[in-house]
Design a protein around this nucleic acid. Structure first.
Length: 803
RNA sequence: GCGGGUAUGGCGGAAUUGGCAGACGCGCCAGACUUAGGAUCUGGUAUCUUUGAUAUGCAGGUUCAACUCCUGUUACCCGCACCA
């Protein structure tokens, strides 16, 4: 048979579609599996081979589970709002909506050509008003509960996109999207209070089946630290609050440092004698990008505030207060107590400014460096703490602080609230109206969605306002509360909004009275298995867990967590091990591969390429192996023996392969599953061909990986489609060979092999070994000290020279 | 600096979790069929000084037995990064 993959693949894709075999059933009595892949951003470049790795993997898993009798939900959609589309639209003067439609059409065709078992009736699109109505609805609920608020804050400002970025979108001080420099700017922004969920986002990780590295990076990102908040009174009258993880070292606090943005600077303006210098320093810090700040991290800079001193609450000493940009306004209280003897940064700063360094924990050598180890050391120079180990001193100091009203135990998080507004056109409008009398008012639910007005010009403005601000007829509205004149919020939501809840919409994509019906959510949630990129661990994955927990709290979703299991795939690099990029000219386009080899070959190869979780290098020659494998299977079809004639040997191999492929798929070991099938096919060819039942079993095992050709070969048996067939089961008893070849070692060195019955006991095995000529020769003149027998594996004889 | 990970033939990678290192595939070599082969088929393929010895980044250790466990060390990759 000529392998006409083009015809075969089209034929089966059409058949599956005609019979709607991938539609998730509404029958809630069936056992379900919800498998999810991150829906793509439909970029102008089209599908990347990198996409096919997670998609194929989850398709393989889903197809197997479907054959095992599960009701499968395996959906697809488009995360289509975002900057690249908008930038492209501006450059080419085409409306983003049109660009998006075009890109989606292309992506859909490309994905369909790969034969995934996707329920296309549930396709969603984040830019569809009937979808973003609910994105806005969730925002309104958060606004009602006080979790969405507007605040003037220091933001990351991309100098090219002219737009605010989330902390997570700033990479090495540059914009994640366009790589332009990011600077700090003070702006009024909508914020989401993700910090209110920090504790739960952290603790609930324990019960989830996420791969460990995902849990670890979320934990690090949330960054819980335990310590105390301490109040320092000042000569200016008001107090300075600091957070510290080392309350035990309070006696060693010889100065304080506040962030350049700290509000007390203005409060103290009339008392500061060097205000100009302080303000100049603040200006300078604001102009530095994050990148410049970290570049200069080695050299500590700062200015002493003249005219105001702080008082160390432990010993009542007056200590100076400095302004320095190594203290961040965004963490803790924006002020620190500096203990140079026991903190590396404080130590550097003290050396630079020639400040006193007082040792309060003995155990290090503070003439050389700060002693920061909190596992050992004993308190000194610390009044009532003297002689205590560090841990005990911490507890004692905290209770002393709270007894005296000077502080309390405190937990702090690195996680910061999510800056949620963007000054761009192509995003969900924030459904808020600003009324001069009533303040911020949510758009009433029955007026949702607030649709994005169609405009001719969506260029970002130089003033940093959203392009929507220019559309006065849209901006000017009436206040839902008092009916007076009001203005609409003109900022839009960030890229991550629509993707924070999309998995919920798939369960009931056309519902227009709720984001999804309770029945659908009860049945389908949580997502059983979610595979996606590591790069989303602290972005999308964390954001969506936050939204989900909020929706759980207001009774909208039935589960505490959205995703029960999370796995992650490695990147695909171009030939030569470099990142695929247009400039390097090493981009592999899936369309070309499908045209040249067919979808089945691409699917097989992308699964065979290597360890699923690791980076893999594309090889244009290695893919031929998978193409040949398919042709071998086709050739094997010609050799199938009619009837039930079978060999014991092949039967054992069949059962072993079923076991291996079944477990490998669940463990993401697709490469070894395919290797096992290749070995089986080679063996089948060697014995002159399988019988019909054996060949059908092979087709079933291979079907999730290469669905089209296996359907084609299965068709002649008139048993219906493989898609709807049942997954093969193995019999453990039949996975055991009658006899096995075991290794024979003498003193741990391989000296030969013998074939024995697989049920042989130790005595029998050793007897056979001793009878073997080669072994006997090796044993000549030796005395056996110990005999080790590992059933089915080896015999090791420990010997020494006979006396 | 902190956190996570990786290291095995010419290449991608296996190894039932302490039991014959190199499965499976690519590439390569030889042969067959061919006017032809960058098609297909068959066989071979870790290295060497080959009755054997040496091999899983490097140096030790535990064990009858170590890619696997322990100690130390090097290199590379990926996050985060002045987080008090």
């Amino acid at each position: 048979m000529q392998y006409d993959f083009k015809k075969i693949e089209k034929k089966w894709q059409d058949k599956w579609a005609e019979q709607n075999v991938f539609a998730a059933s509404a029958d809630a009595t069936k056992k379900k599996r919800y498998a999810l892949i991150e829906f793509p951003y439909p970029s102008g470049d089209g599908l990347h081979v990198g996409h096919t790795r997670p998609y194929t993997a989850m398709d393989v898993v889903s197809r197997k589970h479907r054959m095992e009798g599960y009701n499968i939900l395996f959906p697809m959609g488009w995360d289509a709002f975002g900057l690249p589309t908008e930038n492209y639209a501006i450059k080419h003067k085409i409306h983003p909506e049109i660009v998006t439609q075009k890109n989606i059409t292309r992506f859909r065709e490309q994905i369909k050509a790969l034969g995934y078992g996707i329920d296309w009736d549930r396709e969603i699109n984040t830019t569809d008003p009937s979808y973003y109505k609910w994105t806005q609805w969730i925002f309104l609920k958060m606004f009602e509960k006080g979790l969405a608020y507007k605040k003037k804050t220091t933001v990351n400002w991309c100098t090219s996109c002219l737009c605010v970025l989330a902390n997570e979108e700033v990479v090495d001080g540059s914009c994640e999207r366009c790589s332009a420099t990011v600077v700090h700017k003070e702006k009024e922004q909508w914020m989401l209070k993700i910090t209110a969920y920090a504790e739960r986002l952290l603790n609930d990780l324990d019960d989830l089946d996420y791969i460990e590295r995902v849990k670890t990076s979320q934990r690090n990102w949330i960054g819980r630290s335990v310590g105390a908040e301490v109040l320092f009174s000042t000569t200016a009258g008001d107090d300075l609050r600091v957070f510290t993880t080392r309350p035990d070292t309070l006696f060693g606090a010889t100065y304080m440092v506040i962030s350049p943005e700290h509000p007390v600077i203005d409060q103290w303006a009339d008392k500061i004698s060097n205000l100009d210098a302080i303000r100049a320093y603040r200006e300078e810090a604001a102009l530095k990008s994050d990148f410049e700040r970290s570049e200069l991290a080695k050299d500590k800079t700062g200015v002493r505030i003249e005219g105001v001193c702080a008082i160390n609450p432990a010993n009542g000493e007056e200590i100076p207060v400095f302004v320095s940009d190594y203290v961040l306004m965004s963490y803790g209280t924006g002020a620190i107590m500096a203990v140079p003897a026991h903190d590396t940064r404080d130590y550097e700063f003290a050396k630079t400014f020639d400040l006193p360094i007082v040792e309060v924990v003995a155990g290090g050598d503070i003439s050389k460096e700060a002693f920061t180890d909190c596992e050992r050391g004993t308190m000194i120079n610390s009044g009532f703490l003297n002689g205590l180990p560090v841990k005990d001193a911490q507890k004692k100091m905290i209770s002393w602080l709270s007894d005296n009203g000077k502080g309390e135990a405190k937990v702090n998080y690195k996680l910061r609230d999510w800056i949620f507004s963007r000054q761009r056109y192509w995003g969900e409008p924030i459904p808020i109206v600003h009324c001069e009398k009533c303040g911020f008012v949510g758009v009433p639910e029955n007026e949702l969605p607030v649709t994005l007005p169609y405009v001719e010009s969506y260029e970002p403005t130089e003033t940093g306002e959203s392009p929507l601000a220019k559309i006065t007829e849209w901006v000017n509205t009436t206040c839902p509360t008092c009916g007076g004149p009001a203005k609409r919020e003109t900022d839009t939501m960030p890229q991550w909004a629509g993707s924070s809840w999309y998995y919920l919409r798939y369960t009931d994509p056309n519902n227009d009275t709720a984001l999804a019906s309770p029945d659908a959510l009860n049945y389908w949630m949580p997502v059983d298995w979610y595979n996606g990129g590591m790069e989303h661990t602290t972005l999308h994955l964390l954001y969506s867990r936050f939204w989900h927990k909020f929706l759980y709290d207001i009774g909208v979703v039935p589960t505490k967590e959205p995703y029960q299991k999370r796995t992650s795939h490695g990147f695909i690099l171009g030939e030569g091990g470099e990142k695929m990029s247009k400039s390097r000219g090493n981009v592999i386009n899936p369309d070309d591969i499908v045209r040249q080899y067919g979808a089945d070959t691409l699917r097989l190869y992308i699964m065979f390429i290597g360890d699923f979780e690791k980076t893999a290098v594309w090889s244009n020659s290695a893919i031929k192996g998978c193409s040949r494998f398919i042709e071998k299977v086709i050739a094997l079809a010609e050799k199938v023996k009619p009837g039930n004639e079978y060999s014991k040997e092949l039967e054992t191999a069949m059962h072993k392969t079923i076991r291996k492929v079944s477990s490998d798929i669940e463990e993401l070991k697709f490469n070894t599953a395919i290797a096992a099938m290749m070995a089986l096919v080679n063996q089948m060819a060697d014995v002159g061909g399988p019988n019909e039942a054996e060949f059908q079993t092979l087709l079933k095992l291979l079907h999730p990986f290469a669905p089209h050709i296996t359907e084609e070969l299965y068709e002649k048996y008139n048993k219906g489609m493989l898609v709807m067939s049942s997954w093969p089961v193995y019999d453990e008893a039949k996975t055991v060979d009658d006899s096995v070849e075991i290794a024979v070692q003498v003193n741990g060195k391989l000296r030969g092999t013998v074939v024995i019955s697989s049920t042989a006991e130790k005595d029998e095995a050793v007897a056979v070994v001793k009878a073997d000529e080669k072994i006997a020769a090796a044993l000549a003149g030796m005395q056996i000290v110990k005999e080790i027998f590992v059933p089915g594996r080896l015999v090791n004889l420990v010997v020494k020279p006979a006396k």
